[in-house]
């Protein structure tokens, strides 16, 4: 069909067919992932958001649309702020601490030392253990009076401490378990990244007069930035996601001292059967994580050197 105005490209029928075929292939390749993501990610997210805008339904009073009331309700709940505060502290300590520890362990395990395989294996062991098993292990460490920690401190005449039982120490005890669990896992990524850095660079820096610390700061850390960014995102997600040990160690107590956001969501949804507030809180968590992801991909990525 001839057109006036803007010139259009006239395609040969063979070319047109070829293009259509390409488009078809594209959709075919996309289909499996698209189906699965829709089924298990997009639809549930949309359903959660929809549910968060409805009131809690009971047998007598069915659920009705109530707009942002669930959200307001949450914000006015003092527990909400306790839980958010707990989670911020938990993330704020576990993320930098586990990353720093992972880097130190990786540098150590990458060096030429006897029993290198053993060192690496030892660092990695916590990662292999299921979190539930690890939590049981730590429960034994923390047992007041009888546990490993108190037995040790008892040697110096210190009184037994109920690490998990008092609000001042409980969250810190949880943080220690998490760092112990995560650092070994992150170390593996650093170790892999360190092995891709050619030894020439170290020699070149050495010849230029750079000491160990300068080499670390000016060469190694910048080259490890992509790994650090990857680990950071993982650690951030885990700081929200990883709550298995709470079930064994504290169940959020004492006095909500160790209650983290996801644990609270689980509690609201499956202990108190309050899907309205649970979904609202879920949506808030998704918003925050989404915001962090956007920040990561727009601002942080640009400052990282990728090879």
């Amino acid at each position: 069909m001839p057109e006036t105005g803007a010139p259009t490209r006239v395609l040969d029928p063979i070319a047109r067919l070829q293009r259509r075929r390409h488009a078809l292939y594209g959709w075919m390749l996309l289909a499996p992932a698209l189906t699965l993501l829709t089924l298990f990610a997009f639809l549930p997210t949309a359903a959660t958001f929809w549910a968060s805008l409805h009131s809690r339904g009971t047998a007598r009073r069915p659920s009705v649309f109530n707009g942002l009331e669930n959200y307001l309700d949450l914000i006015h709940d003092p527990n909400f702020w306790t839980v958010v505060g707990n989670n911020l502290l938990y993330a704020g300590v576990t993320i930098p601490l586990s990353i720093a520890l992972a880097l130190v362990m990786a540098l150590w395990a990458d060096a030429r030392l006897p029993l290198r395989g053993f060192v690496r294996g030892a660092y990695f062991t916590p990662t292999i253990l299921p979190m539930i098993a690890a939590a049981n292990l730590w429960l034994f460490f923390y047992t007041p009076g009888l546990g490993v920690i108190d037995s040790f401190t008892g040697l110096f005449g210190l009184p037994p401490v109920n690490w998990l039982g008092q609000p001042q120490t409980a969250l810190w005890a949880i943080i220690v378990v998490t760092v112990w669990k995560e650092a070994g896992f992150f170390m593996i990524f650093y170790l892999a990244a360190l092995q891709t850095i050619p030894p020439d660079l170290k020699e070149a820096a050495q010849v230029e007069g750079a000491g160990r610390f300068t080499y670390l700061r000016r060469v190694l850390l910048p080259l490890l930035m992509p790994t650090t960014a990857f680990i950071f995102i993982n650690a951030l997600i885990n700081s929200v996601k990883l709550i298995d040990h709470l079930f064994i160690l504290t169940k959020g107590g004492p006095d909500n001292a160790t209650k983290l956001v996801l644990y609270w969501i689980w509690e609201m949804a499956f202990s108190y059967f309050d899907p309205a507030r649970a979904t609202a809180l879920t949506v808030l968590v998704l918003l925050v994580l989404g915001g962090v992801a956007v920040f990561q991909f727009t601002i942080v990525e640009k400052r990282i050197h990728y090879r």
Partner: peptide, 18 residues
């Protein structure tokens, strides 16, 4: 090496990629 007053051109060049 740094105290020997010399410089090296490596086969791989060993440039710092970042």
């Amino acid at each position: 090496p740094s105290a020997r007053g010399l410089s090296i051109v490596f086969q791989s060049y060993a440039l710092f990629p970042h």
